[in-house]
Design a protein around this nucleic acid. Sequence first.
RNA 1: CGGGGCGUAGCUCAGCCUGGCUAGAGCGCUUGCUUCGGGAGCAAGAGGCCGGAGGUUCAAAUCCUCUCGCCCCGACCA
Length: 478
Amino acid sequence: MARQALTTRAEDYAQWYLDVIAAADMAEHAPVKGCMIIKPWGYGIWERMQQSLDKAFKETGHENAYFPLFIPKSLLMKEAEHVEGFAPECAVVTHGGGKELEEPLYVRPTSEAIICASYANWVKSWRDLPIKLNQWANVVRWEMRTRLFLRTTEFLWQEGHTVHETHDEAREEVFTMLDVYARFAEEVMAIPVIRGKKSEAEKFPGADDTYCIEAMMQDGKALQAGTSHDLGQNFAKTYGIQFQGRDGTNQHAWSTSWGVSTRLVGALIMAHADDSGMVVPPLLATIQAVVVPIFKGDDEAAAMVADAKAMVAAMATAGVRAKADLRDNLRPGPKFFEWEKKGVPVRIEYGARDKAAGTCIVVRRDTGEKTTLPVASLATDVPRLLAEIQANLYAKAKAHRDARIFDVETYDEFKARIDGGGFFRMRFCGDRAVEARIKEETKATIRCFPLDAQADPGPCAVTGVPTNGVRAIFARAY
RNA sequence: CGGGGCGUAGCUCAGCCUGGCUAGAGCGCUUGCUUCGGGAGCAAGAGGCCGGAGGUUCAAAUCCUCUCGCCCCGACCA
């Protein structure tokens, strides 16, 4: 009996995505073109992501710091490839204090330039290394086309920037952080990901190698959920990060950078939400369990409200983020729908009949399943249920993805099947022109060369030339 | 930058073609009462410089010109 039904995924996936965000009250368009206002329910998810990631960053030996939003033009322009990649999409401040600036200030599209410039001042000796910093910040990229969370002109992210004495150490950092991201995606976001390496065409401007985690959305399209870059000595050479080594010689440091952004919120929506609205994995939910008391008359209301508060308190002692919906201007029905659209993992309905029996109705968002449970055991039952939901969301997402990963042997077969969505594992010769042609003809790109790929020698599906057997994953992507 | 929409109440929109009384509806909101186990009912209210600027006219939400903005689809990208 949905009064304001969402567009279904089958009808129009893009519209459904927008409807979910609106229905869950997660974000809305700002008065500024291409920018969004992240509302509390959406921002709360991002905050949980931040907390979880920040803890992992600290555990892997990183500290937080903050660098300026503005980058002097001359500083940004130093690294040629970097400039080529980012300059076209930069916002530039030309005036300040009512006067034209002597030197324009670029609003950071990423902070390699300004951070590496600082590192150059900080590093003298091999004993100053490594430096492992992270910053939580906003960045601006003047995209032609934007979509809430997935691609906005301004977005929030974290960017880790490290410098090391040796390439080996830098590479270890790159893979450590890729692993942090992968584990976060799978364990916290409940989204399975493929760890891989980007093609030459897709890698970060200025990097030697870019590694990534790729996730599959419900429509079979890919979404890059995080990147970790081996910057080699490129930025060290450009910005002069030099140190005197153990052998007394001057050497350039090896740097890395890695980041994830608020687009992860978009990934979460497209991975787990359904035709009824958002579905938030328990580990990321601001509210994990909501209690909706049901009552007739003031006397009953007082009793139910008191019990509901007690239930929340009991769950809180067990570490559950619970809330009682005590609003008296809404009847139970509308409350049920509201929390369903927001994707709260567990809803607890509690009325006179339940009180008499000492039970309550517990509804899980992921399956819709309703069970009657004793009120007395909520503190043990709900944490268990949340863990089950978390596991189930991952299992569902993984089953969905695994059923849509295909091996294809020929380009013709690929072209015939790409419209159906999914990840296509295909042998590829590595030629950049061929990659461009595939993109042109199919709108699909190489998402990555999976790190765990088995050698499977054979001819390139497009050109027929022999390959080393590493299959690339091709897909259409967000 | 191309292609398509759209700007009228907080939201979704009608009204515009064919100018004319006081600019409308539904939802939401406020107050009160009755309700309360999957989107409640009745009653009374509040709420609009019709995106902006010019013009035509006795008269403009409506016609003309110009402008600003946003959304959707495509090319660029996390």
